[in-house]
Every structure is written in C-alpha cells, then in structure tokens.
C-alpha cells in the first residue's frame, strides 16, 4: 500500500517523530511504499541540519534523512510553518534575504498542497502529533 505520513510535532519534545519513524521503518520493511512525510506545525524542526544531540541519543533529523535516501521517501516541510519557525532552504534564503539556510539533506520545503495531495494519492494517511 501507499502511505502518506503527517508529523505535527518537533523532535525530542514529543514522541510523535519517533513513533512516526518506527512506523515508517515497519511499513517499508513490510513492503509498503511511504510516498511522502509532511512536516507541519513544530514538526518542521525535524528538518534542521544543525541539531547535534548527545551520541547516546537518537539523531532524529539524521534518521529521517537516511530513511529518505534508503527508501526514496519525499520529506516535505510546510513552507508557511517553516517561515514562522525559521527553517530555510536555498530558495527561502534567497527570497527572504536570510544570511544562511538550515535544512537537512533529503528534506524540501513546499506548500500545504503537498499534504492534500498525499491524502488524495495515498491509500492511507497517518497523522502523528501531540
């Protein structure tokens, strides 16, 4: 089956990101396709590349990035939520004249339509939040 995933919370503060990661790992191991993970609200913070958690803890941002590469998963950060919370890629940096960008490899920033599209395209949409 084809899955869409929505993550509403940032990493570490809430368990939502880790539950979503474990769900995605199981889904792909069982032969399902994870088409897209859409990060909304504080969930956009799953996509910052400047996180340096202690080595004995899970690196959530890196884990997403690795999953995306291994299983060809589209990791989409909502642009409206990202702008409120200071997440930027090259395009956002240029558009808003920021002095840098902070998006993790494997993520991209796009509009809310990507979430609706995931709902339309996928057999199941599963939401993880607070």
């Amino acid at each position: 089956m084809k899955f869409g995933i929505q993550v509403n919370e940032g990493p570490y503060t809430h368990e939502a990101s880790v539950t979503a990661i474990n769900f995605v790992k199981s889904a792909v191991a069982k032969g399902h396709e994870v088409f897209r993970v859409f990060f909304y609200h504080d969930g956009v913070n799953n996509g910052t590349r400047y996180a340096t958690p202690p080595q004995d803890d899970i690196n959530i941002q890196q884990t997403w990035s690795n999953l995306a590469k291994e299983h060809n998963i589209d990791l989409v950060i909502c642009v409206a939520a990202a702008q409120r919370r200071g997440l930027a890629d090259d395009g956002e940096q240029e558009r808003n004249k920021l002095d840098g960008n902070n998006i993790m490899d494997g993520f991209r920033i796009s509009g809310l339509g990507q979430l609706i599209e995931a709902g339309i395209e996928c057999d199941r949409l599963v939401v993880f939040g607070d």
């Binding site: 089956m1 191991a29 069982k30 399902h32 057999d123 199941r124 949409l125 599963v126």
Partner: peptide, 16 residues
C-alpha cells in the same frame, strides 16, 4: 510497530 502498520491497512481510514 508491525502490528500498528497492519492495523492501518486492515482498516480503511485512520483517525488520530
């Protein structure tokens, strides 16, 4: 977690 995935495929819709 495998059982979680199975529950989502055994049902038609997931409501969080």
């Amino acid at each position: 977690y495998d059982g979680f995935v199975d529950l989502t495929t055994d049902n038609d819709t997931v409501s969080a």
